[in-house]
Nucleic acid binder design. Structure first.
Length: 421
RNA sequence: GUGGGUGUAGCUCAGUAGGUUAGAGCACCAGAUUGUGGCUCUGGGGGCCGGGGGUUCAAGUCCCCUCACUCACCCCA
């Protein structure tokens, strides 16, 4: 094989695309219902946006960015996530002057340079929402609930994990005490490294000996200020009121620097090591960081590829729709015109282009999941009629060509998917 | 970046201690039914056995290198 797709990418072939589309439709309908407006930002941005927005010490910026120089010698980066670009657009177009809160949803590919494995790609698809301009705990609740509803509509069981990582001051105090605590204890090399850069990352370590060292460590709860604590309590209260089950995990630390207060992840137990289906949180400082007015915000991003993995094999059975025209070479031109007459009226109809036998044409009709076959051979045309065969029941009837189009339009399941009611 | 596993037909895989012309199921094409699908039967097309080098009279099989895929670590979607 001479040409392959690049490592970590995948083709979405028609059969898979049906599932992909179904997931997207669910996201669009639900976002719209919640009042979120569709937004698109470029696939690439100036690298500085992510360096500043996502954070220099994050894995994304340190080793996962697809960066390149354009002909103007500017450093560009294929977007590794969706929030920073949206905040950039929010600031650039001064959208903060419109009525708040602002609600946006996005859908599209993201890029991170990592070794691929099950459920992890270098180009992957995310659906995300962002709500900007309100500090209300109900904003957090709304976003979390929206994601929860999305998984529910797709019938994907997930567990919700939430945490409160407080404000910048809270975290500074907490990091200080974590450093003190771990300084006198043995940790793995990775953790010693993390301790210097971002002690919160140590909490994520799965190394058993590190886990053991964490048993008596200080928890962030003790360092949360009153305001942040009250906010989080209100969020949890909202989730309880809406019967959204959650689990608190004081060790949930998300990989992006801009989060504060509420963080959350939707998890599955069916994908092995890649158990995160999505996550998000509050990012009250990002708008200001990127040059806008101080504007609180909250949002999530969900991984579509992992959803597909969970849902493959559970696709809806294909519905039989539309026509297949069966004809013979001697009258092919005449018959083809009838196919186009029907197409002009919105009827889904296809016919053989490979000179196949009648039998093979019927087989193709069956395989293509057509509901009907329209037979227009020399015999039928000579009689001024066409034969319509129901491929489900096997019943066949003859119809005068005069009223053929109208007759077909009165049959069920003659139009393309999504256009027939 | 680090480790493990796997590379044989479009797909899933078999291939015995190295031994003639590399197999099966599914899929595809055709015929049985000379104008009628699904089921069945019969036949057919389709393989640089990932690539390169080596050992041997002989390599899909053994050795070395390499590439790719895959799983896991790190981290995340």
């Amino acid at each position: 094989m001479d040409y392959r797709l690049p490592r970590g990418t995948r083709d979405i072939l028609p059969q898979q695309a049906a599932l992909f589309r179904r997931i997207q439709d669910t996201a669009v309908v639900l976002s719209d219902m919640y009042g979120y407006g569709e937004i698109h930002t470029p696939i690439f941005e100036y690298s500085e946006l992510f360096q500043r927005g996502v954070g220099e010490s994050t894995d994304i910026v340190e080793k996962e960015m697809y960066s390149f120089q354009d002909r103007g010698k500017r450093s560009l980066t294929l977007r590794p996530e969706g929030t920073a670009p949206i905040v950039r657009a929010f600031v650039e177009h001064k959208l903060y002057n419109e009525a708040m809160p602002a609600r946006y949803y996005y859908w599209g590919p993201m890029f991170r340079y990592e070794r691929p494995q099950a459920g992890r790609y270098r180009q992957f698809w995310q659906y995300g929402v962002e709500m900007l301009g309100t500090l209300s705990p109900w904003a957090d609740v709304e976003v979390i609930k929206l994601g929860w509803d999305f998984f529910a509509r797709l019938d994907i069981p997930t567990s919700l994990v939430v945490n409160n990582i407080g404000c910048a001051d809270d975290r500074a105090n907490y990091k200080q005490s974590l450093k003190q605590y771990f300084n006198s204890r043995p940790l793995c090399d990775d953790c010693n490294n993390r301790l210097g850069r971002n002690p919160l990352r140590v909490l994520d370590c799965k190394n058993p000996s590190c886990q053991q060292q964490m048993e008596d460590m200080p928890l962030i709860d003790q360092y949360i200020c009153t305001e942040c604590a009250q906010h989080f309590d209100a969020v949890l209260g909202g989730l309880e009121a809406l019967d959204v089950p959650f689990e608190r995990n004081p060790r949930l630390v998300r990989g992006l620097d801009y989060y504060n207060r509420t963080t959350f992840e939707y998890k599955t137990d069916k994908l092995g090591a890649q158990d995160a289906l999505g996550g998000g949180g509050r990012y009250d400082g990002l708008v200001e960081l990127l040059g806008g007015p101080s504007t609180p915000a909250v949002g999530f991003a969900l991984g579509i590829d992992r959803l597909e993995l969970l849902m493959s094999g559970k696709e809806d059975p294909a519905i039989r729709r539309g026509f297949w025209l069966v004809t013979m070479e001697s009258v092919e031109n005449q018959a083809a015109l009838w196919a186009y007459k029907l197409r002009d009226r919105g009827v889904s109809i296809d016919f053989d282009l490979l000179g196949r036998s009648i039998k093979a044409q019927f087989r193709q009709a069956d395989r293509s999941n057509c509901r009907w076959a329209l037979v227009l051979g020399p015999d039928e045309l000579a009689k001024g009629k066409g034969a319509i065969r129901d491929l489900v029941t096997g019943q066949q009837e003859e119809v005068a060509l005069d009223g053929l189009v109208e007759h077909v339009l009165n049959l069920e399941g003659v139009k393309a998917n999504g256009t027939d009611t």
